[in-house]
């Protein structure tokens, strides 16, 4: 049995952390992002493994992704920066809060979205939302950038965050399965 207290989960940083995850966390630090708000997914967990134990970050687990939109917006108008980590299914849970809060109130909201329902997916129930993700983001005019290669991670992450704070709105960084891999399950 494992325990979770105040957002600290049992796994910790180690040699196995992928470079892309270290790079993203490094870029978040350069933007003074303090709060990592999340609903867990396997891709987001790679980022959390790097961030845990780093005093620059506070981690807030949520019950549902829509909550995270409200939480990041509250942090933002309070003068602190946060991001929302979630899987593609979570974007579906977040839509009205994005459309009615972050967008009209013009609040920077970087979302780091782990791609489910794409290349290598074993679970058919993840596919419809996964395949709709880029179209849904486009319908809301939310800029979206997909990370597929290790050598572009730093530049694209940096550019996406710069855009979010300049434009004062949501921006999506999609972490593809080409970069992060997929589940072994058949």
């Amino acid at each position: 049995m494992t325990s979770v207290t105040n957002g600290i989960s049992p796994s910790s940083p180690g040699e196995g952390d992928p470079q892309w995850a270290r790079t993203i966390i490094g870029v978040l630090k350069t933007y003074n992002i303090r709060f990592l708000n999340l609903v867990p997914d396997a891709i987001g967990e790679r980022l959390l493994r790097v961030a845990r134990g780093d005093p620059a970050f506070e981690i807030l687990p949520l019950t549902r992704e829509e909550e995270g939109v409200g939480v990041v917006c509250g942090q933002a108008v309070g003068g602190a920066r946060g991001v929302l980590l979630m899987p593609t299914s979570g974007l579906g849970n977040s839509l009205n809060a994005l459309a009615s809060l972050a967008i009209p109130y013009r609040i920077p909201l970087p979302m780091i979205i782990g791609f489910r329902g794409d290349l290598g997916e074993f679970n058919a129930a993840q596919v419809p939302m996964g395949q709709a993700t880029t179209a849904v983001l486009a319908a809301l005019n939310i800029p979206a950038f997909t990370l597929t290669r290790e050598d572009e991670v730093e530049r694209v992450t940096d550019g996406a965050l710069k855009l979010a704070y300049a434009n004062e709105g949501p921006v999506a960084l999609l972490v593809s399965t080409q970069l992060a891999g997929w589940k072994n399950e058949k």
Binding site: F35, E58, L60, E66, E67, G68, V69, G70, V71, V72, C73, G74, Q75, A76, V77, G78, G79, A80, G82, N96, A97, S100, L101, P104
Partner: peptide
């Protein structure tokens, strides 16, 4: 005073975010 014009259910989440920031 921060007034929400839609986003039903988000006042509590937004307040938590404010409390974390300040």
């Amino acid at each position: 005073n921060f007034y929400l014009w839609n986003s039903m259910g988000m006042a509590c989440s937004m307040g938590l975010g404010m409390a974390m920031a300040r």
